[in-house]
Design a protein around this nucleic acid. Structure first.
Lengths: 157, 157
DNA sequence: TAGAGATAGTTAAGATGTTAAGCAACCGCT
DNA sequence: AGCGGTTGCTTAACATCTTAACTATCTCTA
């Protein structure tokens, strides 16, 4: 016995919470990130701090707002996180002489060394993920996620 | 000119941060959730409070630990969130006479009415998502996400 | 060139995430 | 009954998220 009425298509009913898109996205991301977190916490980094170091990797400076956009971290959060990272000696701030508002964030030598140390462990996690899903399905997953992301756009309406 | 060395397969290099799996999952989820948040905030609910009300919907009670698992919210967070929701009259607590540790959480009449009021707006968001990706690709996305989730398992190692 | 508006960052306040402790009620065993 | 281990939940501490207000600086234009 179907639980839906004959004239009421499935899309008119709310999917079971467990299988709703935000929940599935959240759970999957949680599982993935747990693996990364296990590595990063051993080095005293949070996931967000790692994203920042990754974004800065190989560059000699980046403005805070651009850094925030790349890391998918809101500017107010970024502001606080950078304060902590600066006091731990992971980043330094360089003023922009041409525009007193802009601040260039650069990784310290310590940070660069730390990133190089962590990279191979992170790569191992990526390999595990690729083993689970296979290269083809993984590429397919990337494509679908990015298509949905594009479709939803950046605008907040 | 490829940037990778001939004998070094792509999987040995860290994917560009912007296209790393955690980032893509995060960005896609953010875009999706923004849509929901726009609806929920008009009704004074956070995303997490909505998940809780959705999980309780149609049930007359649920233990806190099960509720937390279903909503993908850690128990300590759940504890605080429920305190807020109780003081706003959205949920009530019922003791379990057979086991003094267990507490049954139930939605109030006010909460049930609120959920019914919000449901159609949330459904509209789901329809928009289905329009963007199409039914087939959306199902494909669900399948891939759940396969990856299963593969990563629940264990924290 | 003064002043309105836009831009880059910070600060603030409330809510949640994450980990570790703490507490009370249960369970199993003696 | 009594004791140790387990379980369900709360509290605490710190980090981050989200929205809004605020500051300083810059830009554009009247």
């Amino acid at each position: 016995m179907p639980t839906t009425l004959p004239h009421e298509p499935a899309c008119l009913l709310l999917r079971d919470l467990t299988h709703s898109l935000p929940m599935v996205l959240l759970r999957t991301r949680e599982r993935v990130v747990q693996r990364f977190r296990a590595v990063l916490s051993r080095h005293g980094l949070t996931e967000q701090q790692w994203r920042i170091l990754r974004a800065l990797d190989g560059r000699d400076g980046m403005e805070i707002s651009l850094l925030a956009a790349q890391c998918q971290i809101l500017v107010p959060s970024m502001s606080v996180i950078l304060q902590r990272m600066e006091s731990r000696g992971l980043i330094k701030r360089n003023a922009n002489p041409a525009d007193g508002r802009r601040i260039l964030i650069a990784p310290t030598g310590q940070a660069t060394a730390l990133v190089e140390q962590i990279k191979p462990e992170i790569l191992e996690v990526y390999r595990e993920i690729e083993r689970i899903l296979g290269k083809r399905k993984l590429e397919q997953l990337y494509a679908l996620l990015e298509e949905l992301e594009e479709g939803l756009g950046v605008a907040r309406e």
